[in-house]
Nucleic acid binder design. Sequence first.
DNA 1: GTCTATATTCAGATAGAC
DNA 2: GTCTATCTGAATATAGAC
Lengths: 216, 216
Amino acid sequence: MESVKPPNPIRHLSPEKTAAILDGATRIFLEEGYAGTTMDRVAMAAGVSKPTIYSHFQDKEGLFNALMAQMVQKMQWAHCAQSLRESPPESPEVVLRQLANNMLDSCIGNLERITFIRLVMGESGRFPALGRAFVQHAEKPTLEALTHYLTACSALHLPDPAVAARMFMGTVIYFFMTQELLHGEDIIPLERDRLVDQLIALIVTHHSATSTIASS
Amino acid sequence: MESVKPPNPIRHLSPEKTAAILDGATRIFLEEGYAGTTMDRVAMAAGVSKPTIYSHFQDKEGLFNALMAQMVQKMQWAHCAQSLRESPPESPEVVLRQLANNMLDSCIGNLERITFIRLVMGESGRFPALGRAFVQHAEKPTLEALTHYLTACSALHLPDPAVAARMFMGTVIYFFMTQELLHGEDIIPLERDRLVDQLIALIVTHHSATSTIASS
DNA sequence: GTCTATATTCAGATAGAC
DNA sequence: GTCTATCTGAATATAGAC
């Protein structure tokens, strides 16, 4: 577990094959999980032979680590947080709605992303570095950008923007997890727009409360 | 996948052995995941022979389904929501803080629960019924109890208690997931009490805002 | 550099003794 | 009812040809 060798320990290997292996292996690992994946199926999916895999990667674990490191980069929803940076004139309601919708759009119905998150969660016990990489590259940047944005929105009078950012992310991700990842849409149904509307209402109309009450 | 046979298709099998098998299998499946678990290790952990397992359960999948059905029952945090029912005189702040702390206490440092949730998430693609059972028995009762409680707290003036309940649960579970399940405590550190304090503040002081403003 | 073919280990599942 | 012993297929990884 947790092998740390570089993905390409030997020189003079064709980069096309390396890419083909990573590509094929990604499909199989996402479909079957770590233990459920066989090197034979990876070889088939990549269109190479098994020894070629072992010449490009140390072993099954090394291949998995290399591949998940690549996936974590691709899967970060940094672009979701774009709206936080590029929108000076918009109201917080519009900007936050944009962020929530960007996050949900990148998840809902996106089977590759769903499966990837299942894999990260499922293997974060046996591969702690995988869980940490996901937090580092997928969660932290968005949380920080959102915290920064909420801090700048002084009109909202949020007493703790960092926690508000966690509430925002947590609400959206919990919705995605229960509805899609765990197949709960028929068990605890809730319309997406209703969740987003009320989430934003609760964030935006918040601490004007205390200050208004205090000043009245 | 998704075998639906009863866990005990054949009569005249000792119940003690059945319990021993379920108990041992639970440990191994939690440790190793579904594909990573071998029937040999289950037999060892249960203190029985392999054919005994196959006389009590149809196959590996049937054993897994029976075991996870049992786990979902044990793992529901229904008792966490006790504070919602038995506390007429307490203020919402106190009741909600009790709920958040109950949920976090049952998760933080509870390795069995962490591993169980990893397993449910990781296998919910190949075992959709497992994901649904988790939502049905672990999430839905708490969500409904909390929604009912928040609806009854008319002084809070929450425009949509069902969404507020999701925000509450989502915030707590997202915190647990990033900090513990994904090992992110050092990457995005946040004190537990700070999260709970601000979460409750934002729920409780909410729509008194709008009404206060509107009536002033 | 990449292949075919294979060594070795171990998986899930079962036959038949007691 | 539960065991020992075993079948059959498939897993990871590699030796050696080209």
